[in-house]
Design a protein around this nucleic acid. Structure first.
Length: 280
DNA sequence: TCCCAGGTGTCGC
DNA sequence: GCGACACATGGG
């Protein structure tokens, strides 16, 4: 199946550290799972090509493919006009190289629970290891190649999560899974809450502070005013905007939100990926 | 061997 | 409110 995606950069989108469930293949395609559909994604200029993985029956394949299309468009937010982001990037001299390298990078509309779980795992960790833990969890506790549901993580022994590589974060993830499993409406409440209230609700979970909360709200709830500041973002923001000062992380976070408003999350994503690639 | 990684929880002041 | 320090794990 082919989807028109004229302003889209698949590799930058999938490799910018906002999602951990896609693995790059030798042919530059990506294997992953979107809305419980196992998919193989590839980009040919302005066209996104999607192949379905294992499906219950071959006779359903064409039907299933047409069912997937709207999920793909929504997942990558392909109807969103990036001109608002580009206006910001092109009007700031220090951000222009970021625009040049990463044009077409989009914030994914990730499953809220998956984002919540993954960014609990992300704290004081690195992307490679997060991806490994994601694969372990999916292989051991997931169904059909999808990331495990809250109930599946809630019912195992904490020891199991440690065996999968979570380390000291094991009880954080399990307690959060147990709460979400028992109170599934809590995710809807976060979605419907304005940003500030949503932050308070998210940091109430164990293992979640202000940085992880911003990641969860940005990637899992598409609250684009979130501006996560990790060690990479702190470095690049200090270099670009606080060269002779040592601001707190909170000051950097509020600076980004004030400067870029409802597009702060997007600017953050471009900057984060660019600095990790050594482009800024 | 030490440092780092998409930080947070805890304690002391 | 801010500044240490510990925390599992694996790679450089």
């Amino acid at each position: 199946m082919k989807v028109q995606a004229p302003d889209f950069n698949l590799s930058a989108t999938l490799e910018s550290g906002q999602v951990f469930g896609f693995t790059k293949q030798a042919d530059n395609s990506y294997l992953g799972n979107i809305c419980n559909y196992p998919v193989r994604l590839a980009q040919q200029s302005s066209v996104l090509c999607i192949k379905l993985g294992t499906v219950p029956s071959n006779s359903k394949r064409s039907i299933e493919l047409q069912m997937v299309r709207p999920h793909i468009v929504k997942y990558f937010d392909l109807d969103f006009d990036l001109k608002f982001v580009y206006e910001i990037l092109k009007s700031d001299p220090v951000l222009l190289p970021v625009y040049d390298h990463l044009k077409g990078l989009r914030i994914i509309r990730q499953d809220p629970w998956e984002a919540l779980a993954c960014f609990i795992i992300s704290s004081n960790n690195n992307v490679k290891r997060i991806q490994g833990i994601y694969r372990n969890l999916t292989a051991r506790l997931g169904e059909g190649g999808a990331f495990p549901k809250p109930a599946a993580i809630a019912r195992v022994h904490e020891r199991t999560l440690r065996e999968l590589g979570l380390g000291y974060r094991a009880p954080f993830l399990q307690k959060t899974a147990q709460f979400v499993s028992a109170n599934p409406q809590t995710l809807d409440a976060i979605r419907e809450a304005p940003y500030e209230e949503a932050v308070q609700r998210v940091i109430a979970f164990p293992g979640i502070g202000p940085k992880v909360a911003d990641c969860v709200l940005l990637y899992g709830f598409h609250k684009l005013e979130a501006f996560p500041v990790d060690v990479w973002m702190y470095r690049v923001m200090k270099k670009l905007y606080f060269p002779k000062r040592r601001p707190s992380e909170k000051q950097v976070q509020m600076f980004g939100q004030k400067r870029w408003g409802s597009m702060a999350g997007y600017v953050q994503q471009y900057l984060f990926h660019a600095v990790r690639m050594g482009k800024v």
